[in-house]
Each structure stands twice: as structure tokens, then as C-alpha cells.
Nucleic acid binder design. Structure first.
Length: 830
RNA sequence: GCCAGAGUGGUGGAAUGGUAUACACGGCGGAUUCAAAAUCCGCUGUCGCAAGACUUAGGGGUUCAAAUCCCCUCUCUGGUACCA
């Protein structure tokens, strides 16, 4: 008997799949029913599924679609599993592109931003993402600014925010300061302009106070976070242990410096090489150098060279080692020999103390410099095997010599002894240094949250009163690209001192936008009913946090993810919350490529999500994106494969006509089924088993989709309508997180939406009467045998030998191995 | 340089010690059609007429058995980089 659909295929009649109609219908249904709002019933088990929120640039790109397709699959799955799911979205809406657009086309940053947000909300809806609507927010909302400014004040009061003059990274194009984390290869992370150093006042978050904890608690994230990200953060924090000690000038050098300085301190991670010190080097910005310039102790020519060094961008400074002898000497702390003091361009003022001891014999960098300027190279470590070479520095572990009482020690182990010696004689101490710097957060731009401080002539730097928050941006500004619009505004900055009431000046710097993204995930936990009243409550935070699954791009591995961890720890210490880490599990999705390159406007290889939705529908876009590669890998766009995804959905929709309407899963007597029918059931339940595994553990949606396709192929090879119905009951349930619209449509048409629930695995479908075993000779597969399930091991071996007799002639059988239900391996000799 | 990750058909990828190449794309052939699209069916790792042999970047090792574990080399990707 032929099934109805085979008849229809012959006649060319299909169920017409119209993505637009179906998707619109269900999007309206979800919106009307508030289907994706979490409940406030905190007795239910929860899942907090979060994707990194977008900057409202105007339109979604494929990277966004991938990001939210992944998080939406998680959210929808856990909703099916009866969890209380929080899957919120917002917009990281402050930032320079809004101002750049204003400069370019005269729009107001606010209007530009909120227009974009409206458009992008429409795109989210058309993709069927199951975001909570009630909790949508934009970080440029005044309500958001209000609470953020409150936090800033709290942090300032607790010494976690301070203002200081310092050498800053300045982007000449964007006319603003950048954090170290925002300088990429010496250039601005946004516009690629080479950075220059500028001396100015700036606000800093004291992130270095948390350096140790940020590093140590990375190990608690092991397993939940990709290793790569953990390593990147570890390297970024850059903890190193070593010895810090003072180098004292000799008498004549002290005189030259008019006894203003008698020493400077240096840091080394290689105290074992201390006897090999043959020169020392200061950063060109070092205070001793500055003193010498100011007091005319150096020739004009030398001063010009120093100025050149300090004004060179860090990229150029790295090209060639340059040095200047200062004509000063220090005394070696252990040998009392004099050691010359140099300026070297490779010594960085902002690491350690801006001065180093140099051991050319055992450090590549010091070696290059010594060769160039013909300085002494004193070896003090020799290899355990082989000879020391004079052509290169020996940087391995070896045995100490020419090192006084430490001779003969293993260089690695001697570090402890040498540090101990320095400490006992009070000439130095064990120290830890970090690469991590405090986070500079002020920006000289308009479109950001104002820093809520006031400069008063009498009181100095004072905080704004909390009841006056938010300090909102003025709307009547001119954005020209020249200077800081807040500073140029005629009235905005004039205010009264919050302490003495006298006329004062408002701080015109605004905050780095990474401040907003450092706590938005906490704001989402707040019940919208209380949004006006409070930023969030401890009770709500302790229910929803930490984020069970965070999904976003690897490009945020350091910046955002480090700052968000820092804020969480600060908020904990300020008593706002009581956990240590914000994100329990992190999935970093790969980039979307086309023709092997990242999709970008400048390369002209973008694919517009709206166009794909219009042509094929949101379900096709989502299916392709989740099927083409595992989420953590790069995804190569392929128009043909998109077409393939569309065809699968069409087929999936069309064959649903084989379902017999039912409100419960059909009961099937498995033993009465034909071989094809049994096989189809097995494939369906295999897909179910795989689905649970994928959603909970492996996150390889591509294999879940492949499993569904296999099950469809198997269903297609049989005609039992109960098997069809059961198959669809399960497949439309496990595929709902991926292609929600078409699954809801089928489910409502045939199952009264009763199948979008946890599905029970039926074990009987996996029980088989016979099994095919591979037969291998010496591990190489040669043939196969089909055996009944209860066949004894001996019989299996006999059958295998017979089947493989061709390969066994004249051979001695050494061993026979039977792996139940898998294979037989026969080991032969000769 | 250092640190991490990866290398499987023409392509995206599957298999995490047990029948390598699932699923899909592309290609080829067929059915349907006046024709095309759509749809359906079949074939498709390499060499070979076949029997068969070979095949997971390359080399070595462990094991009855390795894409998978270990060692070496190469290549690619990402991060970081004169960090003392």
C-alpha cells in the first residue's frame, strides 16, 4: 500500500510551505501571549540564557543572527523542559559610532540610536527570537544612567575609582583617551589610528586591586569557559614573581645628580642571573632622566634623542633597540663593582619601576643591546651539557658559576636562595608584578554616561548628590568632531557645588561604554515592576544569577569579560550581591565568513539577514546557521547550503501531511512492525537521545540536525501512519528550538501543541534481534557478519573465521577478540 | 619569540580507543515534463576492468585495535609581544 504522500508526489501535489505566512502567524501569537516572559515564581528551577547585546549600528549582521540563534535554541529548549527561562536582550547604545554618524550626516546621536533600536527590534521579531520583551533596555536610557552613576559614586567613596594625571593612550582620530585593552597593535581598536601618549587627567577603576582574585578565580571557571579565553585572561593579567631591589649610585654619580637621588629600584624575574649584571637601563620617561633634562645635565643632542624616543609611537619604538649612556654608575649590590647606567627605548615606564638590570649573557634582549653598544657580557650560568656559546644568550636552566657563594647551584632553584639572601640582608625583597593596569574610564566625548562629579574651587573634586541623578546629557548640542561637545556647551557644565553650594563646573568627561556592559546582565534580573525604584535586588539576583549560558564573540575574551568579572567582584564587596563570578558557562561562537574572509562592509562580502528572511524565512536562516558548523567554529556562508536548508524545511512541512491528528503520542506495538518501520522508530529515538545530549552538554547543533535528517530519511522509507505521527511528535519537539515557526505550526495543526514538552526515550526501539559485526584481521576491517543477539562468543568467532577465511589461509591465529555488538578482531601471524 | 587551538573526500563537516568519511552541499545518471523550475529515485574518498590495495598534515610509538592516547616535525588560525 502506498502512502498518501507518494500518491501526491506522483500527482505533483504538495502542502504549500509559505514561510512568510507561517512565521508572521506565530510571531504574532507569541507577542500576544507574552510567551517568553519569565515568571516571578522563584520556587521554579531557572535558566538564565544570555547573548552579548548588540550595539545599535542600524541593522543586524549575520554574526548577530548566529549569536542569537544559538542562545535562542538554548532558551527554547529549557522552556520546553519546564525551566523558568530568562532570555533578555538590550542595546549597548552609547558609543562613538552614534557621534560619528552625527558628524557625517548631521543626525542627533540620540535620534540616530533610538531609530536604529526600533528597526533592530523589528529584525529580532522577524527572526523569531524568544527574548523577553518586558525587560528590553538600552544603556543610553536615562534610567540606566541614573543607577550607573550611583554605582560610580559608591565606587569612588570606596576608593575603587580615582582621578589622576598620567600618560594616556590618545586616539587623534576619535579625539579621546583609550584604555590599554582598547589599543590593538598600537592602534585604536575602533578606527585603527596609531595611538600617541598624552599627559592628562583621567578617571581610573582600581582593577589592579583585584588582579590576584581575577587570576585565581579563573580556575573556578575551568570547564564552563573555553580554555582559550581563560588563557587569554591569564596572559592579560600577566602575573610574574621576582626580586625587587635598589641600585645605589656611586659617589661621583650622586654628586652629578646634586644628591637628589641616591638610588633607583629595579625588578627582575631572574635573580639567578644577578652576578651577570653588566649594565642597567632606565626608561626614557624615568624621573631621573627627567631631572637630568630639567637641570641641564645632558647635552642638547642627547636631550633631542630622548625626546625623540618618548614621542615615538610604541610600534616604531619596537623596531630597533636604541640607547644612550648617561655617564652615571651604580654599585652592584653583591660584588660592589660599578655598573654603567643607560637609557634604553625598550624599557617601559609603566611596567615595574621603569628600570631594569641587564644581563646580556642570559637574556636575548639585553644581549642584542650589549652587542650593539659593545657592553660587557658576563656569563654566570652554564649548561649541564655542552658549551656556552658567545653568539647568543643562554636562557635555559643550568649551573651557576662566577656567582660567589651560589656557585654550583641549579639556576632555577638558586632563585629562592638569592631572594632569601637579599631579604635577610635587607637589600631587596620578593615582589609580584602584573601586566594589568588600572582601567582608565573617562572619554572626552558626548554620547556616553556623564561622570557624576563636580569641580569646585574650594572643595576640589566632589561627587554629585545621589538625589540629583541622573546627570543627563543635554539634547541641544552640536556635534562637530572638534573637542568635547559637553565642554563646548554654553550652560550644561555650570552647576552648584554639592558641598558648599558655590558656582562650580561639572565634569565633562563621559564614561567608557564598557562600564555599561559591565553590569547589564544584573539589570536584566530586576523585575520590571521595580525598575524605576531600584537597579536590582539581592533576592532577584540570587535567584537568576549566575548566567547559565552566555553566548558571544571571542573578540570580547579580554575586554568585556574581564570588566564584567571585575564589576561583579566589586559589587560583591560593596554588598550588592553575594556571588563571585557572573557567567557560569560561556560559549564563544566563531565568526561568519564569506569567501574565506570575515563578512564586512569594507570587503563587500556581507549577506543581509533581512534579504535571507524575505526569500527563505527565518527558520531557513536559523537552520542553515546552526547546521553549517558547530557553534564554536568559523562558519563559511554558502548560498547552495542555504537553499538546501530551505528544501529540508519544505520537505519537513510537506510530509507532515502523513501525521494523523492526535493529542497524545501514539502507542505502537513495536514487535508487529516491519523492518523499515522499526528502523524509522530507532532513528527517531536516536535523534531524541542526541538532542538531549546536544542541548545539555555538547552544543553541536549540527549533529542534532543531521540526526533529524537521518530520521526523516528513515521515516520516508516506510508508510505506517502511527510511526509517522510518533516521529513528528518527537522531531517537531526537538527541532522547535532551531526552526520554531514551522514546528509550532505543525504542532498546533496536528498535536494541539502538546508535544512541546520533555520527551521520553522508549528503549524497546533500540533492542534488535540481530546485529552486524565488523570482522577485522589485525585491526583492518575485511568483511562483516550478521549474528543473532544471543549468539555465543565461540559461535561468533567461528562465523567470523569462516567469513574471513580468505585472509586466514596458511596463517597462524594468535588471538581472537569479540567486542559485543561492534566487531570481531582476529590477530594472525605470518 | 611565547601561549592556546586546529589539520579528516571536490566543499561544510560526522565519528573522542572498536566497521573512518554519518548528515548536507556540489557533481554525475535516471524518473516526471513539450521544456524548464520544483519534486522524486540512484551513484559519488583515491588507485584499479576486476579481485583488491591504499587513505584522517608528515614521521615514530603505545595497543588485539588509533582520526582519537604519547613523542617529534610541518602547516594554519587566534591571542600576546622589547613585561625586565
Amino acid at each position: 500500500m502506498e502512502s498518501e504522500f507518494l500518491e501526491r508526489i506522483k500527482l505533483g501535489i504538495f502542502l504549500e510551505y509559505n514561510s512568510t505566512t507561517i512565521e508572521k502567524k506565530w510571531q504574532e501569537y507569541w507577542a500576544k501571549n507574552g510567551s517568553f516572559e519569565p515568571t516571578e515564581d522563584f520556587t521554579k528551577e531557572k535558566k538564565y540564557i544570555l547573548s552579548m547585546f548588540p550595539f545599535p549600528s542600524g541593522r543586524l549582521h549575520m554574526g548577530h543572527v548566529r549569536n542569537y540563534s544559538i542562545s535562542d535554541a538554548f532558551a527554547r529548549y529549557y522552556r520546553q523542559q519546564n525551566f523558568n527561562v530568562l532570555h533578555p536582550i538590550g542595546f549597548d547604545s552609547f558609543g562613538m559610532p552614534a557621534e560619528n554618524a552625527a558628524i557625517k550626516n548631521g543626525s542627533h546621536p540620540k535620534g540616530w540610536t533610538y531609530n536604529n533600536i526600533d528597526y533592530m527590534k523589528g529584525e529580532f521579531a522577524s527572526l523569531g527570537f524568544s527574548f523577553s520583551k518586558e525587560r528590553e533596555l538600552a544603556t543610553s536610557d536615562e534610567l540606566y544612567t541614573k543607577f550607573e552613576q550611583g554605582f560610580i559614586i559608591d565606587m569612588f567613596e570606596n576608593g575603587l575609582l580615582y582621578r589622576e594625571k598620567g600618560l594616556l593612550n590618545w586616539c587623534p582620530h576619535d579625539q579621546t583617551v583609550l584604555a590599554n585593552e582598547q589599543v590593538v597593535d598600537g592602534c585604536c581598536w575602533r578606527c585603527d589610528t596609531p595611538i600617541v601618549k598624552k599627559d592628562m587627567n583621567q578617571y581610573y577603576f582600581k582593577i589592579t586591586q583585584y588582579a590576584d582574585e581575577l587570576l585565581d578565580s579563573l580556575k573556578n571557571l575551568d570547564g564552563g569557559w573555553p580554555k582559550q579565553v581563560l588563557t587569554m585572561q591569564e596572559n592579560w593579567i600577566g602575573k610574574s614573581n621576582g626580586l625587587e631591589f635598589d641600585l645605589f649610585f656611586d659617589e661621583s654619580s650622586k654628586e652629578k645628580l646634586s644628591n637628589t637621588f641616591d638610588s633607583f629600584d629595579v625588578f627582575t624575574t631572574r635573580p639567578d642571573t644577578i652576578y651577570g649584571v653588566s649594565y642597567t637601563a632606565l626608561a626614557p620617561e624615568h624621573k631621573i632622566v627627567t631631572y637630568m633634562i630639567e637641570n641641564n645635565l645632558l647635552s642638547d643632542e642627547v636631550i633631542a634623542q630622548i625626546k625623540y624616543m618618548t614621542n615615538t609611537s610604541s610600534i616604531d619604538r619596537q623596531k630597533e633597540k636604541k640607547g644612550i649612556a648617561l655617564g652615571l654608575n651604580v654599585v652592584h649590590p653583591l660584588t660592589d663593582k660599578t655598573v654603567p647606567v643607560w637609557i634604553a627605548n625598550f624599557v617601559l615606564m609603566d611596567y615595574g619601576s621603569g628600570a631594569v638590570m641587564a644581563v646580556p649573557a642570559h637574556d636575548d634582549r639585553d644581549f642584542d643591546f650589549a652587542k650593539k653598544y659593545d657592553l660587557a657580557i658576563n656569563a654566570v650560568i652554564k649548561p649541564y651539557e655542552g658549551e656556552l656559546s658567545s653568539d647568543a644568550a643562554f636562557t635555559e636552566v643550568g649551573e651557576l658559576f662566577n656567582s660567589g657563594e651560589f656557585d654550583g647551584l641549579n639556576s632555577k632553584k638558586s632563585q629562592y636562595n638569592i631572594i632569601k639572601y637579599f631579604e635577610e640582608n635587607k637589600i631587596g625583597k620578593k615582589t609580584t608584578n602584573y601586566r594589568l593596569k588600572d582601567w582608565g574610564v573617562s572619554r572626552q566625548r558626548y554620547w556616553g554616561a556623564p561622570i557624576p562629579f563636580i569641580h569646585c574651587e574650594d572643595c576640589g573634586l566632589v561627587m554629585e548628590k545621589k538625589e540629583n541623578l541622573p546627570i543627563a546629557l543635554p539634547e541641544d548640542v552640536e556635534i562637530t568632531g572638534e573637542g568635547n561637545p559637553l565642554d563646548n556647551h554654553p550652560t550644561w557644565k555650570h552647576c552648584k557645588c554639592s558641598q558648599c553650594g558655590k558656582d562650580a563646573i561639572r565634569e565633562t568627561d563621559t564614561m567608557d561604554t564598557f562600564v555599561e556592559s559591565s553590569w547589564y546582565f544584573l539589570r536584566f534580573c530586576a523585575s520590571p515592576a521595580n525598575w524605576e525604584k531600584e537597579a536590582f535586588s539581592k533576592e532577584q539576583l540570587s535567584y537568576w544569577m549566575g548566567v547559565d549560558q552566555y553566548v558571544g564573540g571571542i573578540e570580547h575574551a579580554i575586554l568585556h569579560l574581564l570588566y564584567a568579572r571585575f564589576f561583579t567582584k566589586v559589587f560583591r564587596d560593596l554588598g550588592y550581591l553575594d556571588f563571585d563570578e557572573p557567567f557560569d558557562n560561556l560559549l564563544t561562537q566563531g565568526m561568519v565568513l564569506k569567501d574565506g574572509a570575515k563578512m564586512s562592509k569594507s570587503k563587500g562580502n556581507t549577506v543581509d539577514p533581512d534579504a535571507i528572511i524575505e526569500k527563505y524565512g527565518a527558520d531557513t536562516a536559523r537552520l542553515f546557521i546552526l547546521f553549517a558548523a558547530p557553534p564554536t567554529q568559523e562558519l563559511e556562508w554558502n548560498d547552495n547550503a542555504v537553499e538546501g536548508a530551505y528544501k529540508f524545511i519544505k520537505r519537513f512541512f510537506d510530509r507532515s501531511s502523513n501525521i494523523v491528528k492526535t493529542d497524545t503520542i501514539p502507542t505502537i506495538n513495536h514487535s508487529t512492525l516491519s523492518k523499515d518501520e522499526k528502523y524509522a522508530r530507532k532513528k527517531v529515538y536516536e535523534a531524541l537521545v542526541r538532542a538531549n545530549d546536544v542541548y545539555n552538554e555538547k552544543h553541536t547543533f549540527n549533529t542534532l540536525i543531521a540526526g533529524t535528517m537521518e530520521a526523516m530519511n528513515a521515516l520516508n522509507a516506510q508508510t505506517n501512519s502511527d510511526v509517522w505521527s510518533e516521529g513528528y511528535w518527537i522531531l517537531s519537539s526537538i527541532m522547535e528550538p532551531v526552526i520554531p515557526h514551522v514546528c509550532w505550526d505543525i504542532s498546533s495543526e496536528y498535536f494541539s501543541l502538546n508535544n512541546l514538552n520533555p520527551q521520553v526515550v522508549v528503549d524497546e526501539v533500540f533492542v534488535e534481534d540481530s546485529v552486524t559485526l565488523g570482522v577485522s584481521i589485525n585491526g583492518k576491517r575485511r568483511t562483516e557478519i550478521e549474528v543473532a543477539l544471543e549468539t555465543t562468543k565461540e559461535d561468533i568467532i567461528e562465523m567470523a573465521k569462516e567469513a574471513a577465511s580468505k585472509w586466514l589461509e596458511d596463517k597462524e591465529i594468535v588471538k581472537e577478540i569479540v567486542v559485543p555488538k561492534k566487531l570481531v578482531n582476529i590477530v594472525i601471524k605470518g
